[in-house]
Design a binder for these strands. Structure first.
Lengths: 349, 349
DNA sequence: ATTAGCAGTCAATAATGCCGACTGCTAACG
DNA sequence: CGTTAGCAGTCGGCATTATTGACTGCTAAT
């Protein structure tokens, strides 16, 4: 679609602009990249690229800036999204230190992705629209106050305080949970509700609480997430002084509308890049989004990196791809699935 | 220390500046406040206030801006920190909707305080340097993978995945936790470590994990906290364009050094205000901090609101004071303490 | 002690001119 | 015919200057 030399020049423009955040001149290109032609030729090519909409100029006699279309072309030509070995080692080292804690994994992953990509990262908790019951436990706190601990499929823990009508000894509470656990095990909330059981008042209260917790859990999509590196957004020259940045920050803080940014057509283990005005939300029109999914069909989470359209796509995509695989393995363990997913290489849409 | 009229003028200056974020002129004061004197007199008083360091001027022929000393005086004259009844009702309504969940309480409280005070709010999880064991539970996840659920005093829940040497049936896991629970109940990690018990390898592994979790839990001070309303910082005109704001944001995001901002001398149920350069941390020299404590001796948490020195102190102090009492009640319930704390009125330092 | 009035100060804004970074074009070149 | 050197033209950015208007500080009258 673009002849090789033109493509090479466009990619050089994008690379330089990503690094320097300033319009690129024809001279700069021949100086910094090995194009083998003179600046005049580059100017001719740039005129063509501008005409075709791959780049634009802030004003008549200015250097060129990649447009969304230009970035899209650039991203399409990228390949080899493996992280440097040193970084891979660093990551696996850090993960060994927080062995065995889902929340720590996600929080750590968000922190690392954010640091590696120098942008804001969000990771949503693996989520399934119909959680399965795994285990419950009742712990007496004080008088008639009882802590209900609920373990869902995938080692997800929920808690809820219950106020009982009368004080109940711990031994009886334990007996109740011991009785309910085998009955509820492996069922989702609809199935639990449908059970025809002969229950005491107390047991009914507990069942109601369990169902309610599961309902809330199933209901929240992008509400539960780990957010890291908001300050990188502010560091970006294109954001530091604008009104836009504020709207984006607010969206991030409330997680509202984060879901709407995700395009529906995304297969697992594939990294999708949404550039600038391709975003559905108006506020994110000068942002790019790199989105990965992880987990299993029964519990999928999303990794996303948000930054200005001028972001280091290769690094970002590599980070997201790496963690997509890593977290998928971890979640597979939690859900007792042994299928090892094919890994190693992903390519953006 | 300041004669009544001078004090009244100073407070008028502070009030106006808090509302408008612009230097106040003598004319504006006589127009907007009922001072009963002419602008010339106000100018004379302002000259005095400037000489004494309560206010300063950005340049020679400019209006006046309160200094930290001026704010300090202003805060000292404030009284009546009750929230409007409508807001109190709104709060108790919202809290009824998330009955029984500590994490939701704190998260909600941070959100409300932030909204009410139009500034950034942080609430730390109630914390004690030597947590007490309450209950543990082992849930088989898959093969030899087991989820250890640990409940600490105060309904705090921790989780950890364990990889066992062999696969162990759920019934045996339940038996183990049933055996360990009465042994550990009410003890802190040192006491648990000191127990001379005859344990199997498996039980030893579990004990080690329990102690390690408790150790980590006891170790982290301000790490666990709920942060809300960072975008308010960016909205403030004094922050929107500065380098400072970035440093503050970074500090907030990493929670580092948040602890160092808290003055040590603070009694429970008392709200402390730290103004501008009174802050120990250099980065926070144009910030003010309103700090409240809540909880019990055995589990105290901190509420803090951070914003520019030009913040609506009355509203902020009232919000913090209100939630200090509210959360104290809730925590007291969790810890099985029935002492109702004397409430209603607090005054800042 | 208070006040009116006036002179003086200084930031903010607009207007102007200059510099330099780039491009677009044209004509020459291989 | 693609490529290149060179030059004219454009426009943002920066520094300089002028103008305005919002305040104060001072002084003299009340």
């Amino acid at each position: 679609m673009l002849n090789p030399r033109t493509g090479k020049i466009l990619n050089s423009i994008v690379n330089w602009y990503i690094d320097h955040a300033m319009p690129v001149s024809s001279q700069t290109l021949v100086r910094d990249y090995d194009l083998g032609v003179s600046s005049a030729t580059v100017r001719n090519e740039m005129a063509f690229l501008e005409q075709e909409g791959y780049i634009f100029r802030p004003h008549t006699s200015a250097g060129s800036v990649p447009s969304d279309k230009g970035y899209r072309f650039y991203v399409g030509t990228l390949e080899d999204f493996t992280l440097p070995v040193s970084e891979q080692r660093m990551i696996s080292h850090l993960f060994h230190q927080v062995e065995g804690r889902l929340d720590e994994w996600l929080s750590l992953a968000a922190a690392i992705i954010s640091r590696l990509s120098q942008n804001t990262a969000v990771i949503t908790v693996p989520h399934h629209p119909a959680s399965q019951f795994r285990h419950t436990e009742l712990v007496s706190i004080q008088d008639n106050l009882v802590l209900l601990v609920l373990v869902l499929q995938g080692a997800r823990i929920k808690q809820q305080l219950l106020t009982l009508e009368h004080q109940v000894p711990q031994s009886e509470l334990s007996a109740i949970s011991a009785r309910l656990n085998p009955l509820f095990g492996g069922l989702n909330r609809a199935q639990i509700s449908d059970l025809k059981l002969d229950l005491s008042d107390l047991e009914r209260q507990i069942l109601a609480a369990v169902v309610k917790i599961m309902q809330q859990e199933d209901g929240q999509g992008y509400n539960q997430s780990y957010l890291e590196g908001m300050h990188f957004l502010l560091n970006q020259p294109e954001f530091s002084h604008s009104e836009r940045s504020l709207a984006v920050m607010e969206m991030l803080e409330h997680r509202t509308a984060l879901g709407t940014l995700i395009p529906q057509t995304q297969e697992k283990e594939q990294v999708v890049v949404v550039i600038g005005s391709e975003n559905k939300a108006e506020v994110a029109h000068n942002c790019s989004l790199v989105i990965g999914r992880y987990g299993l069909d029964e519990a999928a989470g999303t990794i996303m990196v948000l930054g200005p359209t001028r972001m280091p796509y290769r690094r970002v995509i590599a980070s997201v791809a790496h963690f997509s695989v890593l977290l998928s393995h971890l979640v597979a363990d939690l859900y007792g699935v042994n299928t090892f997913l094919e890994t190693d290489k992903e390519s953006p849409k």
